[in-house]
Design a protein around this nucleic acid. Structure first.
Length: 598
DNA sequence: TTAGGGTTAG
């Protein structure tokens, strides 16, 4: 709508020219800063009532996540056109505000404006984000049919996504099968839906059938396999993707890294040298344009593998290339510092995050700091940091402090932490076990007993520690003192042999790793049959000399097994990779990649 | 009138 003062033909053409000028300015801007500046100019020119320009601004707000700005812009327009409504709905929907999206959609209908083919994909995306209310999506589907827009391919794709995210894969498949024309996005949507609904076979079948695949198709299946716990399939498909010359992008990297994280038990020669992390690094290095997501993924990836210095140097490299770190980047780099015991660096990054990048630390950031300070023995500083937090600490924070108290034998602080922790999660067996471990390490057996009684009273059971190893595509799982394996005799012979070699190498069992109140000699024996040692022994008798042994443990590796595995790696001249609940440990030549911080 | 859309993800 032209400015009321501009009505002569001459001024009208000047108005058009202004409109065009602003429009081209907006087309070139990418950041909120630009938009705000241009918006100020729009006001002085009296163009703030202009629907066309407002639409353009809203679309920019959407891509820059500037929702407040989007609301302000929208509410300045007295008679929004359908395009403006659509752009506002888009901004809300794409910025994870499904309830607000549906509210505005309802408001739009109340003004007698009928939704069109552009409206529904955004509205359906909002419905897909609220799978707990499946009737919502169904009623929108009803409206689509009533208006006669159901043949629209965009809307149909959105319906497929909505149904598969709401747990109605059957409806999604039906819509897919009835579609006269399917484009690659249609195929991608339904394949993603199948994998999301854990129908891996159907997803793969459709992938194999599809006439044309793009990088999203490949990513969908790689991610699908990873999310369904089939890391080896994911990595196999990634190899095929590369051999077919498909250029991976940052989403591929994300999925491949997740697959690598799972791949601890994979015995595949091509991944064995240096671990699957190298695959991820290759993808990363080959990427032409690295976004903050790519950097974050790579930093978290190397952090998880315990390569603290590499994470730090990636972070610095990222800053030098002008990519601004976000909260997730800092979680990655703090996590890396935590695993590598880099206290000074962590303090520096924590400060820099707030002061330089204006990021408010979240519980994850505090968690890393507490964990790290605790591990290196700065228990009081860790506790002070917890007290200074502007929100209530959650279980992860108290858990980190408690773990540190155990390592450093600080009984009083541990009791405090565990009391807070048990209030937050009385059902979690791990908490009782940690407290019981602390008492056991101090020889306070009566207290150990009372914790156990409490556990019994509350029907809590300790998760049994177990370790698994993959040999010839089958998984072998061991628990402490396990004798159920059919090759148990050989395994125990190997263990005895290792125990002897370890003693000769100067290994002294650290008996405070043991929970139970038993005599010293028995304690030593219990340590010797921890699940990870059984899995390693089994690995040694089943693989050829020099190959890497990969173990997955469901809990954190214990202090004694960590020491023993370091020595074993040297004695048997093998690289042993253990993925525990927290991270990867690469044992080689008597050392571990975690530098004994874990 | 002009512009605006759906799939994979840390």
């Amino acid at each position: 709508m032209p400015h009321p003062l501009l009505h002569s033909p001459f001024i009208n053409s000047k108005y058009r020219a202004l409109e065009e000028e602003i429009f081209s300015l907006l087309s070139k801007s990418t950041s909120l800063n630009h938009i705000t500046q241009i918006h100020a100019r729009i006001f002085t020119l009296g163009l703030h009532q202009n629907n066309f320009i407002a639409t353009k601004i809203l679309n920019l707000c959407s891509s820059t996540s500037s929702i407040n700005h989007a609301c302000l812009t929208f509410h300045h327009i007295s008679n929004p056109t359908i395009s403006l409504w659509n752009s506002f709905i888009r901004a809300l929907s794409q910025n994870d505000l499904p309830i607000e999206t549906l509210k505005i959609y309802t408001q739009m209908k109340n003004t007698q404006i009928s939704p069109d083919n552009y409206t529904f994909p955004f509205v359906l995306k909002a419905c897909a984000a609220l799978p707990q209310y499946p009737p919502l999506g169904q009623s929108i589907h009803g409206e689509v049919i009533r208006i006669g827009l159901d043949p629209d391919p965009y809307i149909r794709n959105s319906l497929i996504v909505m149904y598969s995210k709401s747990g109605y894969l059957k409806n999604a498949l039906l819509l897919f099968e009835e579609m006269p024309v399917r484009d690659t996005a249609t195929w991608n949507s339904i394949i993603a839906g199948c994998f999301r609904s854990e129908n891996v076979e159907k997803g793969r079948e459709l992938f194999d059938q599809m006439p044309e695949r793009n990088v999203v198709s490949w990513n969908t299946v790689v991610a699908g396999y990873t999310q369904n716990g089939k890391a080896s399939e994911a990595l196999r498909l990634f190899r095929r993707m590369q051999s077919e010359g498909i250029l991976p992008n940052e989403v591929t990297l994300v999925s491949i890294l997740s697959a690598c994280a799972q791949a601890g038990a994979i015995e595949i020669d091509m991944y064995s040298k240096g671990g699957s992390l190298r695959d991820a690094r290759n993808v990363f290095d080959g990427m032409v344009e690295k976004t903050v997501v790519s950097w974050n993924t790579m930093i978290s990836g190397v952090a998880m593998h315990g390569c603290g210095e590499e994470a730090v140097s990636l972070f610095e490299e990222m800053s030098n290339t002008g990519v601004e770190p976000n909260d997730i980047t800092y979680i990655g780099v703090l996590c890396a510092c935590m695993h590598a015991g880099l206290v000074e660096e962590a303090r520096m990054y924590f400060k820099q995050m707030v002061e330089k990048n204006g990021i408010t630390p979240k519980v994850e950031h505090y968690g890393c700091m507490v964990n790290l300070l605790g591990r290196v023995g700065y228990l009081i500083e860790a506790h002070e940091l917890i007290k200074s937090m502007p929100f209530s600490p959650d279980a992860s924070i108290w858990g980190a402090l408690l773990g540190a108290c155990r390592t450093h034998g600080h009984l009083e602080l541990a009791e405090h932490a565990v009391i807070c922790l048990l209030e937050l999660e009385p059902w979690n067996a791990g908490n009782y076990v940690l407290l019981s471990n602390i008492y056991a390490a101090k020889g306070h057996w009566n207290d150990v007993e009372s914790v156990r009684e409490k556990m019994k009273g509350r029907r809590v059971q300790k998760t049994p520690g177990s370790s698994s190893i993959e040999i010839d595509s089958s998984i072998h799982e061991f628990v402490i003192g396990d004798r159920s394996h059919r090759r148990s005799i050989e395994i125990y012979e190997k263990l005895d042999e290792l125990a002897m070699q370890l003693k000769l190498a100067g290994y002294v069992p650290s008996v405070d790793s043991v929970l139970h109140d038993i005599c010293e000699e028995e304690k030593e024996h219990a340590l010797n049959v921890h699940s990870e040692k059984l899995a390693i022994a089994f690995g040694l008798i089943n693989t050829s000399p020099g190959t890497t042994i990969r173990i997955i443990k469901n809990l954190r590796i214990c202090g004694d097994c960590h020491t023993a595995t370091k020595l074993i790696s040297k004695i048997v001249e093998r690289e042993i990779i253990v993925r525990d609940r927290i991270r990867f440990h690469h044992f080689k030549d008597g050392k571990c990649s975690c530098n004994d911080f874990w």
